[in-house]
Design a protein around this nucleic acid. Sequence first.
RNA 1: GCACCUGUAGCUCAACUGGAUAGAGCAUCAGCCUUCGGAGCUGAGGGUUGGGGGUUCGACUCCCUCCAGGUGCACCA
Length: 551
Amino acid sequence: MKKYLAEKVGAALVTLSYDTTTTPLVFDKPKDEAHGDITTNIAMLLAKAVKKNPRLVGQEIVGRLEIDPKFVSKVEIAGPGFINFSFTDEFFTSQIGALLAQSEGFGKINTGGGKKTQVEYVSANPTGPLSVGHGRQAAVGDTIANILVWAGYDVTREYYYNNAGRQMRLLAESTYARYRQLFDDSYGFPEEGYQGDYIRHIAEDLKKLRSDSLIALPMEEALSVSKDFAEQELFQAIKKVLARMGVVHDVFFNEDSLYKTGKIEEVISEFRRKDLAYDQDGAVWLKTTALGLDQDRVIVKSTGEPTYRLPDIAYHREKFRRGFELIVDVFGADHIATIPDVLAGVKALGYDPEKVKVVIHQFVTLKRDGEQVKMSKRLANFVTLDELIDEVGSDAVRFFFLMRSTSSHLEFDLNLAKEQSEKNPVYYLQYAHARIASILRFAEEQGTFQASTSLAGIDYTLLKGPAEIALTKLLLDFPETIELCSQHLEPHRLTTYLQDVAAAFHKFYHEHRIVIPERELANARLALCLAAKTVLANGCKILGISAPERM
RNA sequence: GCACCUGUAGCUCAACUGGAUAGAGCAUCAGCCUUCGGAGCUGAGGGUUGGGGGUUCGACUCCCUCCAGGUGCACCA
């Protein structure tokens, strides 16, 4: 429709000999229904250039328009100079059939054009159970990946981790110490070790498996066994909790592989060759100042160990080398400082940093009984993702994590998430779906409607009520919503949209009885119900929450 | 001190990326069940969009400045 109007308005502009090359012709959807279904500000933009009254320019354009009244019911100049177009009801309702024909595929678009895309998210090292913050990242990353798939991108979901280095050494020492304490409770615990109870559990499992055999081993070997065991248990737990949320990665990329295949060395020598790296105080520095940043950074410590920047840069280079044309990194706010360095490094290696889109999500706080839940990682009394899912369920966890824009801090109200009432947005949405399912069952029992056979020959022009038209319009917006979500990598637009759909359905339901003796009208309304159910189900699928037939 | 995020109704948050009278939910108050799911619907009140400047036909949105909260600023990841 936009295309059609663009053509017509464009033609009018040419007739009026306005300059159409410098002024973009853009159509928007007004927020206020009274302003029509689509609007353009072209008259105001042109008026500025030619110093005329915008409303006058609008009049000229509208005067030259030749538009099919079957689609467009009204064209008017409004406000400071907007040209508003209103469409006929039939224009909207005539598209319901096509929506139903696409069914489970309705909403799929191809703006991605099969572009090879990677979404990296969670990427927590196996040093402990996932926190609620990781949960937000899992929900956001996974849903962005789903959205991109719907928008026609070829998506790989990836988890990057490091099972070497200082943190893992601490994990090994902590595990081993807890293990020894099972035999001798005076055995010392490392100063900065991991305090959490989960280490004790791992140690107990280790004892079950190996009895006291580790005590006799040389220390290095005992630590190595402890590390491997703890890592394995923790990774299992991580994968398990992610699976509870419906999150499954395609690729687990180990940082260590970058060393083994010489990729790290390669990056260093390339930086040296480009005169972007130098030695000072026994360390290797990256000349980030030459790349537009405010200070140089160490990439290899004087101990010979690289800092996190180096493997991060090497990893991103591998992403490009593996052929990804769009790279989405989902990070927590605490990683924000590393991004400029990595992007500068990528650019210096000859790759386009514009292809890397970083989604930063802010922190999560939990609220229970109106009070903020205190969490401290150091004291290990933080709430784990597993516990959160136990308490409120996977659907609520995903939905709550998705319903705010990622750049906003998120307050997770535990009481609300558990509440089974209209206050809870998840239930509101799912209830709409279940309610439609129930209506369709009822109609089938009455013999008035069979979803599989009754769709042919439906007269959609019978749908005329404002609530019917409003619902129809909203349902047809679904593909556009997917497009916006994919462009901006913003899942919360989808939760907001689906809330609106649910609300529009409930309103429609209250204003119109659906299963009525007038067969024709009943069938048209039932088809509209089915269309609403389709959109809700497809939307829930993308969000990763269930769309129940009964509840 | 510097960088990034945030500041919108009593609370939690939107606002189609510069558009028209800033919108939802919760909370408060007032209504709606003989009939398809009341886990629902309708209505009311509630705002100087943190303050102050600027850019322009037009600003929650862009620029400057100040204030408040969060995060980061290691040869930790």
